[in-house]
Amino acid sequence: MVYMKRLAQPRTWPIEKKEKKYIAIPLGKKHTESISLVCALRDMLHLVKTRKEARNLIRENCVFIDNKAAKDEKIAVGLFDIVALPKIKKFYRLVLSNGKLQFEEIAETNKKICKIIGKKILKGGKIQLNLYDGKNFISDKKEIAVGDSVIVDIVQNKITGHLPLKKGATLLVISGKYASQQGKLLELEKNKAILQCENKKLEVPKKNLFVIG
């Protein structure tokens, strides 16, 4: 397992820095927008007390991320990923609130929101969409653009909805100094956007935005 010193952990991690010296680094996703599964189970959800207990849960196929059985306590749980423990009927979504990653308990669901980070035209005119969480889909929906979000059915593994990045859309800022702020899109330029957040306007890099409504 790869570690970092807790004093150097991202500000988005809601974990006590002085309790222990080291903390597990999530593998496979951006650190500021994800947490390792062992930290999720032990330090945030308090479902286990030790790394060994977390590993045992995983080995017994008790933990699922986006409807897939987790195989390793080091893997990353990313923003909007769904962590399910069906044997005890517990379901959680990782969100960003008040500048921190947090788990919200939810009802059992097969729906997940995800951002489009890449788009490629394939032979025959089909389109490959690359998603924020590492998934890829083949689609014929030419209107879906990089920066938009889609609703994914994680059970049937297909896109069921489209949330375009356009004026009036509800956006979440996922990184930078305004991380966790939400607002309506007022203006969109090549590399930045203007958001109306309550009674103030924010100028945010386009890459830091996530369409949520």
Score class of each variant (00 low, 15 high):
G183S: 03
G99T: 05
P26T: 11
V173A: 06
V38G: 06
K5H: 10
R93Q: 15
G118Q: 06
I88L: 05
K120T: 13
I23A: 04
S97E: 15
E60S: 13
N61F: 02
S97C: 05
K190N: 14
R6N: 10
N199K: 15
Y22M: 12
A8Y: 15
A169Y: 07
P10R: 12
P205K: 08
P164Q: 05
F91W: 14
I117L: 01
L96T: 07
I194Y: 00
K120I: 03
M4V: 15
F64M: 14
L188W: 04
G134W: 00
R11W: 09
L172W: 06
I15W: 07
L188H: 07
C39F: 01
H162I: 04
G78C: 11
I121F: 01
I121G: 00
I159A: 03
I117S: 00
V204G: 08
E53Y: 05
D153G: 06
V155R: 10
K74I: 03
V155Y: 03
L27V: 12
E60Q: 14
R55D: 13
L129N: 00
H46K: 15
S36M: 04
E203L: 12
S36V: 09
R59V: 00
S139T: 13
N157S: 09
I154M: 07
A169F: 04
V152Q: 02
D133G: 03
L47C: 09
L188K: 13
V173W: 05
V95L: 11
I58T: 08
C62A: 13
I113Q: 06
G161I: 04
N67C: 03
K29Q: 13
F103I: 09
Q156Y: 07
L47E: 11
I106S: 07
R11T: 12
H31V: 15
